[in-house]
Design a protein around this nucleic acid. Structure first.
Length: 591
RNA sequence: GGGGUGGUAGCUCAGUUGGUUAGAGCGUCUGCCUGUCACGCAGAAGGUCGCGAGUUCGAGUCUCGUCCAUCCCGCCA
């Protein structure tokens, strides 16, 4: 039997036509003398009626069985129309039934409401059933539309998609890599590419000028809701571009993407925020701009304070920051304790606060504050009845990070109380710029690249590379949406001498190591490397946002669990001694 | 590597201070039913309380260990 229509197609205009449909049994309603079957395919649902000799056969169907039917399109009685279905005005009176496969009873409900509540390990074990749910089907479709939109956009801008190898060489300074043993070269390994970074720069040297790729990347780091061991990056690089060119290019892509997938017009150009300002005002380098609750700095106010905890932090180079969670004075003991725990997990000794209730500042620390200090707080934080003010005193970056996190949790608590609305479809895009090129790695006792070692310094800061590396800003940019880092990129170093200097003099990588790891790149740069820059962003995260979900597992057809297992196919698995021998590998099990 | 939450019927969950035969809804099965669309009605089956120790006269409940899922920290140039 061949299908003449899909299951979202039939309307009153098809009345009287003989049609055939193929699909899955979505539900059966057996009334004895008459049986209704909702037949589902990837397009929708059509009601099929069995009241003829086929009734007996239809009674033996089970949900999720695959059948084909043919019959005549009939109009439903007026009061039997199902307004929830596009095909709800009609039904098919079956005259033929072909049963392809009777399904076993599914291990969990396949409707959206029921399926959402099911434990994820069960959904992953039976992923092929999970993907039958309308929501998951929609997510796959959104992902397809998104990748198509992106490809169309870059094609329209005359970018070409070039594939780069997944099997690359090991470069241990970045993320931990997946190693692939070489059979032909005993004892040697490839690494699965963490990103096409070096290849795309080589492509610029090759004169491609405008490159993009929807590339699979691999990182052997611990998994999260927004991190999988293999994930997809949209990778872009162009020659003869400035930061402004990249901003405009990428904003154009996002504008088209949001239009194509959601039909939403997003505002461009995006807001821009320097890293310093992002940290100072929001306590994080990827601020959620959908609400205020900004941090304020009181380091100077408390430098000579009678409250020794704040004063000593201020005089020893740290920062005293405060945040007014407006209207949150009704926090419960438990909620305060939880916030305190959050602060402690980020290295705070405690979480000082002032609760403004009944015209009074209720706080264990306020008795140490002078009148001038109180006045400064009131004025700059706009403290009023019903407010809750939190403090952090620590080294600058830590103080920011602590209150940045408290800001997010306070916002959630305000949402819970109906005092704040944060809409998931309120798209607040943002460029974060002027990151420091280097940061000092205490553990290694050396500078490390904040982004990656190929990022070019801001020209006017380049002179500081020798004298004060941490003051040098990089030509790096991150694009942030609603508190999530979508991606980032930079203008690259294209002069071999400068690149070598960064590797050897600033990052202190020994010359022979630089040569063995990056020699080919430096060599390529000596043959006429154009100035170039680009950006890369996580497709999975972007699609998750477009689908309104927080877990990228919901937009990946076959994701792995947090322990890196595929519960359906059951990987990883041990391999045979023969395989290992062929690869010159011996395994050593942990104790 | 560390912290939080969870694991009881096929699914989602309840289970009081440690105490009789571990419950509910949905699903499944059987029967009835010609207008349902979350069909309805009547009935039934279904349990290694994640696993392993321990405490106790007695453990789903308390303790320790362990496994799995998930969220977070570290990590992710």
């Amino acid at each position: 039997m061949h299908r003449s229509h899909h299951c979202a197609q039939l309307t009153k205009s098809d009345l009287g036509a003989t049609v055939s449909l193929l699909g899955w049994v979505d539900s059966i309603r057996d009334h004895g003398g008459i049986i209704f079957v909702d037949l589902r395919d990837r397009k929708g649902i059509t009601q099929v009626k069995f009241d003829s000799s086929l009734r007996e056969q239809a009674a033996h169907l089970k949900d999720e069985s695959v059948i084909g039917i043919s019959g005549k399109v009939e109009v439903r009685p007026a009061d039997m129309v199902n307004k929830n279905l596009p095909t709800g005005e009609v039904e098919v009176d079956a005259t033929e039934l072909e049963v392809h496969n009777i399904s076993d009873t599914p291990p969990f409900p396949l409707d959206d409401a029921g399926g959402d509540k099911v434990n994820e390990d069960l959904r992953l074990t039976y992923r092929y059933l999970d993907l039958r749910r309308p929501k998951m089907r929609k997510n796959l479709l959104v992902r397809h539309k998104a990748t198509k939109s992106i490809r169309d956009y870059f094609d329209g801008q005359e970018f070409i998609e070039v594939e780069t190898p997944a099997l690359f060489k090991s470069t241990p300074e970045g993320a931990r890599e997946y190693l692939v043993p070489s059979r032909i070269h005993p004892g040697q390994f490839y690494a699965l590419s963490q990103s096409p970074q070096q290849f795309k720069q080589i492509l610029m040297v090759a004169g491609v000028e405008k490159y993009f790729q929807i590339a699979r990347c691999f990182r052997d780091e611990d998994l999260r809701a927004d991190r999988q061991m293999e994930f997809t990056q949209v990778d872009v690089e162009a020659s003869f571009v400035t930061r402004e060119d990249i901003y405009a290019l990428f904003e154009g892509m996002l504008k088209k993407l949001w239009q194509d997938v959601l039909g939403t017009d997003i505002q461009t150009p995006f807001l821009r925020l320097a890293f310093q300002d992002a940290m100072n005002r929001f306590g994080v380098d990827k601020p959620d701009m959908r609400f205020g609750l900004e941090l304020a700095d009181f380091t100077e106010t408390f430098r000579t304070s009678g409250f020794k905890v704040f004063a000593s932090t201020a005089t020893s180079g740290g920062a005293v920051k405060a945040l007014n969670a407006k209207g949150l004075a009704d926090l419960t003991q438990g909620e305060i304790a939880k916030l305190e725990e959050t602060a402690k997990s980020l290295g705070a000794k405690g979480l000082a606060f002032i609760k403004v209730e009944g015209g009074e500042w209720k706080s264990p620390i306020v008795k140490f504050f002078s009148a001038a200090e109180k006045a400064a707080l009131t004025e700059r934080l706009g403290i009023a009845e019903g407010d809750m003010v939190f403090f952090a005193a620590a080294p600058w970056e830590k103080a920011c990070a602590i209150l940045g996190r408290i800001r997010l949790e306070a916002a959630q608590l305000l949402v819970k109380r109906g005092k704040l609305t944060i809409r998931p479809d309120d798209w607040k895009f943002l460029w974060v710029i002027d990151f420091p090129l280097m940061s000092y790695d205490e553990e290694r006792g050396a500078y490390a690249a904040t982004h990656h070692p190929f990022t070019a310094p801001v020209p006017e800061d380049a002179a500081l590379l020798n004298s004060d590396p941490k003051k040098v800003r990089g030509q790096h940019y991150d694009v942030v949406l609603n508190g999530m880092e979508l991606g980032g990129g930079s203008i690259r170093i294209h002069q071999p001498a400068l690149q070598k200097k960064v590797f050897e003099d600033v990052l202190k990588i020994p010359a022979d190591v630089v040569e063995s790891r990056f020699g080919y790149l430096l060599k390529a740069f000596t043959y006429g490397a154009p100035p170039h820059g680009g950006i890369a962003f996580g497709l999975d995260r972007m699609v998750a946002l477009l689908c309104g979900t927080t877990s990228i597992r919901d937009v990946i057809a076959f994701p792995k669990t947090q322990k890196g297992q595929d519960l359906m196919a059951q990987s990883p698995t041990p391999v045979t001694p023969k395989q290992l021998k062929e690869l010159h590998i011996a395994t050593v099990m942990p104790e």
